[in-house]
Write a protein that binds this DNA or RNA. Sequence first.
DNA 1: CATAGATCCTGTATGC
DNA 2: TGCATACAGGATCTAT
Length: 281
Amino acid sequence: MPELPEVEVVRRGVGQWAMSRWINEVEVLHPRAIRRQEAELSSILLGRRFSCASRRGKYLWLPIEDSDHCLVVHLGMSGQLLMQPVEQADEPHLRVRFGFADGGPQLRFVDQRTFGFVMSDVLVAADHDGRIPASIQHIARDPLDPAFDDELFLGRLRSKDAEVKRLLLDQGLISGIGNIYADESLWRSRIRATRAGSSISAVKGRQLLADIRAVMTEALAQGGTSFDALYVNVNGESGYFSRSLNAYGREAEPCSRCGSPIRRSRFMNRSSFYCPRCQRT
DNA sequence: CATAGATCCTGTATGC
DNA sequence: TGCATACAGGATCTAT
């Protein structure tokens, strides 16, 4: 599932291959993928160029040159942004095609489970620098953002009685974390997912934040190696299986720290993996 | 407001 | 072999 590191790899790929090229085609193959705004999408994009690729948490956006608009992209669970040659056959779950006047590789949005989307949006002033899409103003900065406010996050985390894992998954509190990196970060910090945010000490909270950054930075470093010129290689799944996971997906396998079998439990309609010995509370 | 749970979706894996 | 069910989970919505 694409989380912050995977989305960042996509951002770099799109930023390298889809910028400053005149857009002359927007073809929508599935209305759900664009939240039913086909007319807006075409009108803001045709005859224009993307100027750069930005990201906050799991959200990507591509500002449009000489415009207040942008293309917002969320990969959901199974979304992919691919750069594909024009002659390449359509993918089975191709949802939107963006073609360029230079006849070079197309930008394609492919999504099996249709939780992802691409949509047009207006850019508005952000709290500090630059502008962000209006629809993601409620998304908190992510832990790799230089402007992320550690103390603000820790204060909010420690003021809530909700379970710490749910708080990590709350994109309004800290963005970019999904089920996999939540489990991995909690494993590193030896914190049980069900613990209340208010029970986390300031010291432990800082350690958790450091572990979140460490696991994401390591994943990003590994994701970057599989990058290919014509294929923005982030389908979220293929990359991360090659990574060194300590908890996620390792039910019944020995904890790499203490040897106890990793356990799995249901939580928030999804699986949680943890070491019952290392993560006592 | 805070919190907990349901819901969207479809390909793959598993059970009988 | 065939059919039914479980599972994956990001974000949003609903109910309490």
